[in-house]
Write a protein that binds this DNA or RNA. Sequence first.
RNA 1: GGCGGCAUAGCCAAGUGGCUAAGGCGACGGUCUGCAAAACCGUUAUUCUCCGGUUCAAAUCCGGAUGCCGCCUCCA
Length: 486
Amino acid sequence: MALKIYNTLTLKKEAFKPIEKNVIKLYVCGVTVYGHCHIGHARSAIVFDVVYRYLLEKGYNVIFIKNFTDIDDKIIRRASEEGISWKEVGEKYIKSFYEDMDALHVLRPVHEPRATEHIEDMVRLVETLLEKGYAYKVNGNVYFSVERYKKYGELSKRTLEEMLAGARVEIDERKKNPLDFALWKASKEGEPFWETPFGTGRPGWHIECSVMSTKYLNNPFDIHGGGKDLIFPHHENEKAQTEAATGKPFVNYWMHNGFVNMEKEKMSKSIGNIFLIKDFLKNHHPEALRLFFLSTHYRNPIDYNEQSLEDMHNALLRLYYTLERVSKLQPAKIIKPKRHIPADELFNRFYKAMDDDFNTALALSYIFELSKMLNRMIDEYDESAIHSIHYTQNLMVRLARILGLLNDDLQTFHHNETQRHLEAKGLDMETLEKMIHERTDARKNKNFKKADGIRNLLLEKGIMLLDTPAGTEWRIKYISPMKGEE
RNA sequence: GGCGGCAUAGCCAAGUGGCUAAGGCGACGGUCUGCAAAACCGUUAUUCUCCGGUUCAAAUCCGGAUGCCGCCUCCA
């Protein structure tokens, strides 16, 4: 099966051919570490985590690099705000980044280089660009001359004339062209700096990615990814610098994920409508966020709202409850997974969907179909089916894990869900069990009015009771306030 | 102003030339139940923003209109 990837450079879906057979070199722009990660960072991380997982699943040796930008204007500003050094700012938010990524089950890339560990390489790149005449010095700053690089605008699909017509670029007298961008910035008093042949200063924004990607992957390399907002200027500039310096193409396939909107508006720090991953995790299972993102194609925008997240949380619970039903079946003495052809068909369709530019929305639908298939097999249970059931379950879990879902074992899942949910609703285990007990007694005495009252009370708290032959069980169920009132 | 994208059921969302227009959430009916719930079965878009065109055939291609969004400035 052939993988196709939508390439921002050509605006087309293209058959994917790695440069080296069986090896894929993947670079994704990481974060600038000056704050906690928000839901938008989470989308990018999850999208490329799934790309990484799927490429591994297909048997490729994936050299996946994701950087930290740990020196920049905003970090310096943050340091003075928090009264700590810029290095401490970096350390603090790298730690925060890992907490969030681990919670979201984002796999660690092969290397996670930091900008400040590659200053020497940056200096070398700037020198090369100066030597080749692509860059010029002004008062300790070094600028890249966009007019010298003929393909400037190739990635973001605009010409220099068009960009200037936009005329929102601040005119800086020192630059030859307003669109020229800084490779190296002269440091001001009190700012971090490095000594270089062209002056005391610090790197510009784009250069770290050029340096780290080519250092670990060489160029051209296979896939470069990031959020859509990085196409211009970040990726355009990375490409210009690297191609000008090396005389070789930079990247074969450019992948960009769409934004997360809040109430139809882009989530961004400047608008101030950001929602942190840490806040999300207080109220939801981390996989609900994955499910939410993966239910839309990665290139499309997605609108974040509580209702959608609750829908997704319910959908996630459904998958876990299917696994739970399977776990409760009378175990066979020896499980010999037996092929179940309809399940295999869904498995194949899953791969086909993923091969089509990572169509996770379609791929997910097959996981839900496997879940339904399992439930049906359990409903019509006879002992001989146990082997097929296990086979089907294994397929379902395997596919889910390619998407980074169903990571929890049932115990962990229950424990975490219960903790989070009870806390959010101001309940505790003891009260809950007492209420269930009370209701059971009421039912025994045929006092159904009281029993139903308790049940409704709990339902309002998002706890649903199930009377099974084995006794009363309870589950979490997200009910939106609107629907609850109806 | 320039460039790019989107418009599919109550909501979210796949599908981009031809089998019954995926899947999730929700709603309704059935089985089950004290009644429920869960689970399963069934129903929930004869039609894909609108108007033209191409074609034997279009949600899917082309032209136009309307609406929404993004980039052109730090951003995932």
